[in-house]
Every structure is written in C-alpha cells, then in structure tokens.
C-alpha cells in the first residue's frame, strides 16, 4: 500500500534558534505581540510503499534517523495519513 507521510523536523528544544528568534521579532513588529517561542524547522512530505501504516511509520522514522534530521541538533515528528 501507498502511504502519504508528513515529517516535521524542528531545532532541539534548548538549542539557540536564531531563525526562530528573527521571525518572532518580525511578528512582534507586525503587532502580533502574543507570538512567543517561535521555532523554525522543516516540513518534508513523501509517499512510501509499505504493508501497513505501522511499517510506513517505521520506514519514515529510519529515514529521519539516517538523513532527514540531525540527531545532534534536531527532533522530528512522523505522521502517516490514513
């Protein structure tokens, strides 16, 4: 079966995220004073062939471990459609 997978990669909590800080300042300048703790990461979408939703999730997690996220600086979240 074919599964659509959504991967979110974010800078690890506690590590400085200058990109997130810059976006937060810009939001504040626009008047969105309530916007706090902005973190900028990546969203990666892909389709995988797998026997089950569980297997698709496991495949995507392995992809994150090996390539899509840096284990030193980033955390990731995998979501499988369906």
């Amino acid at each position: 079966m074919n599964f659509r997978v959504h991967v979110r990669v974010v800078p690890r909590a506690g590590l400085l995220d200058p990109q997130g800080q810059a976006v937060e300042h810009a939001l504040s300048a626009l008047g969105f004073a309530g916007a706090k703790d902005v973190r900028v990461g990546k969203a990666i979408e892909l389709s995988v062939e797998a026997a089950s939703k569980h297997e698709a999730h496991a495949q995507a997690t392995a992809m994150c471990d090996k390539l899509l996220a840096n284990p030193v600086t980033e955390d990731f979240l995998v979501e499988v459609e369906g």
Partner: peptide, 11 residues
C-alpha cells in the same frame, strides 16, 4: 567528527 555546525548565532 562529533557535534554539528548550526546557523550562526547572529544570522
């Protein structure tokens, strides 16, 4: 090598 190189602190 250990560690990682991240975006410069002052952008």
């Amino acid at each position: 090598l250990p560690g990682a190189l991240m975006r410069n602190s002052r952008l």
